[in-house]
Write a protein that binds this DNA or RNA. Structure first.
Lengths: 299, 299
DNA sequence: TCGGTAACCTGCATAAATGCAGGTCATAGC
DNA sequence: GCTATGACCTGCATTTATGCAGGTTACCGA
């Protein structure tokens, strides 16, 4: 009556090869929790324990070894299928992705060539602005948002965590004095930041997390303009690490004091299954995974 | 990034072998709609049409033939897995199923031996009563309900449609007169039925569907008692076809006039994945599929 | 030509699976 | 012994898949 689900066998194979749930999840594009659940479901159905859990991950039992031999046979037959699949190069049309200004110009711009190489017939519009285009109004196919949308016909998943911190130019610091503690910022320093009433996302209201009562002296709604102000020695301000660390004209201030934030990948319910939209999603996910260290640097 | 889901390949194989969505669905224990959706999803992902649709069902395309060769290879490797699985004979413990009185005593009783043979170490309590045990109170593991539950921590799926109709003994009809039309029932006939204020399910209040204004002369809350009354010539009454047609002492009255009803298979959210509960569900489903003709006879 | 039938599809409600955030557990290192 | 770390698990919210009821389409037979 009930047949063993092949997708559970596929999960088993990924875990056996990777030796760990998280790594297997990465291979299949799923979450580690899901891998654990699929494995437990398969074990319950087969009535056998397939792995023993160690600190390093999963070690096959004897029953697991026997099953693996059979599932490897399935995989050998399945291997030829991928080659017959319609390829990424076949995708045509255009894809518009709306992203935060800094993320688009400082991070994603370096990955656009890879997208073009993989999808030669697909035109990518990368719209990097202060504020996002509306998916509901079909202004864009995909958006990268600073906060999770809670309404509308959209689907959200987390893209990546990232960190922001304070930066200034060495010339500014030599002139205005060193910053040893956050409280030093309130004494004789010029701060650069966003315009409070023109914030396009509440997540950008972050100065109070550094120290209460900080007042911005020079303001812009553009992160790129803020970065230019800092690089020319006008003051101290908060930037995403992927911007501040990439600019040789800037050094971190209070380097271990970081502000955590998250990018969310947002698609429209009606279009998120389209091949070109899926290709855009895959590209974004691959880009942040490849350069996770830049988005969230270690101390 | 995105790997072809093996369960979609499994669905493809079932369709290719069965030549039809509905038959493939039966093999995998799913709904035909689901098979169609999985096939369309696989075709979209592979970018190829795998079947052509005819009146008889699905005919493989060339691309479908090529894929089938590879998926048959997977199936050959997978064939050994089923044999290594923990078997139904390993299940132990007890399983309590609460069912309507007539369904338990006239229909399921004939299938209990098959259950026992398949699960020698599993004890089956088949509780056949007017009224059902409570799943919420853990009085039973599975219930077969006359109506779909709309509240509580339970899961419902349709088990089977069935039909009821009027029956009487030939001796009663010879004495009291033939019934040519429903309206004849209001003239000189004795009706047998449920006690209106003791109905344990609103679906049992069906006399008005035969003809308005019928009054029951002899009443019992037990369908078995009602059947005994009819068989001994006391009157005319409504019985499920699987009871009335099985009793040689009874003949249908107004045979083409039938009352459609449905059995619902109900389980508890917390226990429905247990192997013994799944075994009970499988058994119920198999029983009604095997004898569908008895539950819902043709004219 | 029309009605019936078989097979599949669509829309909505329901059930199941999955992702996210935080917690637990075991082990290694100090 | 305590703390940090890595791997996995739990609970809840969200997303996806599935079942059910009814509709559509194409073909066959009267």
């Amino acid at each position: 009556m009930q047949v063993t689900d092949w997708s559970d066998l596929q999960a088993f194979l990924a875990i056996a090869r990777a030796g760990q749930l998280a790594r297997a999840a990465h291979v299949l594009g799923l979450d580690a929790t899901t891998m654990g659940r699929r494995l437990r479901r398969l074990e319950a159905r087969l009535g056998a324990s397939l792995f023993e859990q160690t600190r390093e991950g999963q070690v096959l039992t004897e029953a697991g070894e026997r099953l693996l031999a059979q599932v490897e046979g399935m995989a050998a037959s399945a291997a030829g299928i991928a080659e017959g699949a319609g390829s990424a190069a076949d995708l045509a049309g255009s894809l518009r992705i709306s992203v935060p200004e800094g993320f688009g110009s400082w991070f994603l711009s370096r990955h656009v060539a890879a997208f073009a190489a993989e999808h030669p017939r697909l035109t990518l519009d990368l719209v990097a602005n202060s504020g996002l285009l509306s998916l509901s109004k079909r202004e864009a196919d995909i958006a990268v948002s600073l906060s999770r949308p809670r309404a509308g016909p959209v689907i959200a998943r987390k893209l990546s965590d990232y960190a922001l911190r304070l930066y200034a130019s060495p010339a500014y610091l030599a002139r205005a004095g060193a910053v040893e503690r956050a409280a030093d910022l309130t004494r004789g320093h010029d701060l650069v930041g966003y315009i409070p009433d023109l914030l396009y996302d509440p997540g950008l209201d972050y100065l109070g997390e550094i120290h209460p009562g900080l007042e911005v002296r020079m303001r812009s709604s553009s992160i790129n303009a803020q970065q230019r102000l800092l690089a020319t020695g006008a003051g101290i301000g908060v930037l995403p690490c992927f911007i501040g660390d990439a600019d040789p004209a800037l050094v971190p201030v209070l380097a271990e004091r970081r502000i955590p934030r998250t990018f969310w990948l947002v698609t429209h319910k009606d279009t998120h299954q389209l091949a070109r939209v899926r290709a855009g999603k895959d590209w974004l996910i691959a880009a942040v995974q490849r350069e996770r260290e830049i988005l969230l640097p270690h101390l």
